[in-house]
Design a protein around this nucleic acid. Structure first.
Lengths: 229, 229
DNA sequence: GATCCATGGATTGTTGACAATCCATTCTAG
DNA sequence: CTAGAATGGATTGTCAACAATCCATGGATC
């Protein structure tokens, strides 16, 4: 009865959980387009389950804010208009700034190290011209940033925001951006934290987010910083 | 066909929504004790609905983090141990600090005014010795603080945290605290924002939270600031 | 020709019954 | 007396059918 290697508990995830994850991914990567209607009957048939578990899955997505439910009408993939995108990035600024400040305040050396690692992964991807990997490493950097603060609640809230961020990136798919700039912005953030400089951390994050916003919402506020191609 | 006064849309909330709200309130105010098991069958009978809608309601609470679901075992009201409480307050520090900084950065005069109003309500309740009202005004102050930042996402995340906070307060029910101190701490926060002083804002919020933590988790870190009765 | 009403199709909302799983208890064998 | 297996009760997990609701289409009336 000894376990020579640790086995994974089988089927530990609930059916609703499995479906939720697949649907979320489909929304994140644009396979389910914003505004598209989700038919319970059709989806249930596709997943090969009854409407019960499927309903549970969709309800989770509703509460995550990825799906909008109109009573007696149906479920629709949420569309992110300009206002929503601004709100999303405002929330990300709040969370990520707070996370960075926490790392500084607590002097979490390990978090700093992990940030550097994440940053180096971005740099490598940029040098190799691997855009998909660069994008993944980018998201990972922000996950590490918030994870480093060590608050499970903060991290969970941030995860939801990052799913929406990925939705935005998917919508931007195809537009080009100079990888060097992208990497440099993250280096600023990482180094500000490493140096324990809260002021430049705030600046770095706000500018980083503004940069993203400028690309997502072209008719934005300041034309001065819009240096993107 | 004219509407002499605006009528409320009837039955606009779903059954699951109604049940969710009632269960959440019961948990918040301790009518459902932490650790208590929630039986779907019993609850469904009490609400007079089938297990379908009830399940939907409980699932929402699970995702909010108020209820823990053990597969094939049952649902249990989440218990907040010391670690959880610390995490909760860390998250609140992050969100509320970020909200305050946003108000300062954007120079939201209206938010400042609302904060003062909320603060005055606390002061009035304290003078009248109305402890229940003081507690409500206290929570309201924090809601106004985050609401003032104008981010729907931030506010939603904060609401969840405040529900858990209320759970903690319910657990503390009966312990006394000097209302004057309580009011003064909020005044510090409000005035720091009004003065646009980010540094003292951060200090005020952190000390305010630490004060609350000291009462919730007696064997806490610093004995120096523990001046509570 | 425009407006109102009735009808039909489609969707979600709800239900009660059935299956699978788990835990505690009891029983049995050593 | 103890360790292990069988069993029973209770709970969640799942399903297919039914009811309620909504929107669009088409037709009748003025």
């Amino acid at each position: 009865m000894s376990s020579p290697q640790s086995f994974k508990r089988v089927n530990r995830e609930s059916t609703a959980g499995l479906i939720t994850r697949q649907l979320r991914e489909a929304i994140m990567y644009g396979r389910l387009r914003p505004g598209a209607q989700l038919s319970e009957a059709i989806l249930a048939a596709e997943f090969g389950v009854s409407r019960g578990p499927l309903r549970e899955a969709t309800q989770r997505l509703v509460q995550e804010g990825l799906v909008r439910a109109e009573p007696n009408r149906g479920l629709f993939v949420k569309e992110l208009d300009e206002h929503e995108i601004r709100d999303l990035y405002a929330a990300r600024i709040a969370i990520e700034t707070a996370a960075g400040r926490t790392i500084i305040r607590k002097g979490q050396q390990q978090a700093v190290a992990e940030l550097r690692t994440a940053y180096e992964a971005m740099q490598r991807a940029a040098e190799e011209g691997a855009l998909a990997q660069l994008s993944d490493a980018d998201l990972r950097f922000h996950e590490v940033l918030v994870g480093g603060a060590g608050s499970a609640r903060l991290q969970r809230m941030h995860q939801t925001l990052m799913v929406e961020t990925r939705m935005c990136l998917t919508a931007l798919q195809g537009t080009y951006r100079d990888p060097e700039d992208q990497v440099a912005e993250h280096q600023r953030i990482a180094e500000a934290i490493a140096a324990g400089d809260s002021e430049s951390l705030v600046e770095a994050i706000e500018e980083h987010m503004q940069e993203a916003l400028d690309r997502l919402v072209p008719g934005s506020r300041s034309a001065g910083t819009a240096t993107t191609v």
